[in-house]
C-alpha cells in the first residue's frame, strides 16, 4: 500500500479528534481508536502527530499500538486472507496453506502487499472446525482445503 492513504483531509480529521479529546482523562486510547478508524492504520506519521500534539512519548504510543490487536501499523489490503490456526485447522495442515499463500502472493503473515491488494493474517479458531482447515477472503469462506486448492482461490481475486 502506498502512502496515499495518509491524506491531508484525514490528518485534519485527526487534529479535530485530538482537539476534542485533549482535556479528558486517559485520552490516548480513544484517540488511537479514532485514528485507526480514520486511516485504517496507525503508522509512524500518525503516531508522530499524536505524540507531538499530546506530548506523549512516541515509544509509549507505539507500545500501546503494538499491544492491542485492534490497532495496526499498516492498512489492511483490499482482500484480507485469514487462515485459521486453531487446533483443528492446524492439525489438518493449515500451516502448509499459509506457506502456499505466502509463496503465491509474496505477502508475509501480518503483512500487506505493496500494491495494497492482499493482507494475510493467521487467526485463532473461527468456529468452523468442521470445515478444517479453513481460510476466509474477506467474507468468503473456503473449507476442507488442501494445498492444491490455493492457486485457484488466489486466481479468483487476482483478476
Amino acid at each position: 500500500m502506498t502512502k496515499n492513504y495518509l491524506t491531508e483531509e484525514k490528518f485534519a480529521k485527526l487534529h479535530e479528534v485530538i482537539e476534542s479529546h485533549k482535556d479528558m482523562q486517559g485520552p490516548l486510547m480513544p484517540i488511537l481508536h479514532e485514528a485507526q478508524h480514520i486511516f485504517g492504520a496507525i503508522p509512524l506519521e500518525v503516531q508522530k502527530t499524536i505524540s507531538e500534539k499530546m506530548n506523549v512519548p512516541l515509544a509509549e504510543i507505539y507500545g500501546v499500538v503494538t499491544f492491542y490487536s485492534q490497532f495496526t501499523l499498516e492498512p489492511k489490503g483490499e482482500f484480507l486472507i485469514s487462515i485459521c490456526l486453531g487446533t483443528a485447522c492446524y492439525v489438518r495442515g493449515a500451516q502448509q496453506l499459509i506457506d502456499k499463500v505466502v509463496e503465491l502472493t509474496g505477502v508475509g503473515v501480518g503483512k500487506t502487499s505493496l500494491d495494497g491488494k492482499y493482507s494475510l493474517e493467521a487467526t485463532r479458531c473461527i468456529g468452523a472446525c468442521g470445515l478444517a482447515p479453513v481460510l476466509t477472503v474477506n467474507e468468503d469462506v473456503y473449507g476442507r482445503l488442501v494445498v492444491a486448492d490455493i492457486p485457484g482461490i488466489i486466481q479468483k481475486y487476482n483478476g
Partner: peptide, 20 residues
C-alpha cells in the same frame, strides 16, 4: 521525562526499546 524506551508488543513477543 523523555520516554525513548518503552514496552512493545505483548506476551512472549514483548520487548523494550524505542518506537518501531
Amino acid at each position: 521525562g523523555i520516554g525513548i524506551l518503552d514496552f512493545t508488543n505483548r506476551g512472549f513477543e514483548t520487548t523494550v526499546g524505542p518506537a518501531f
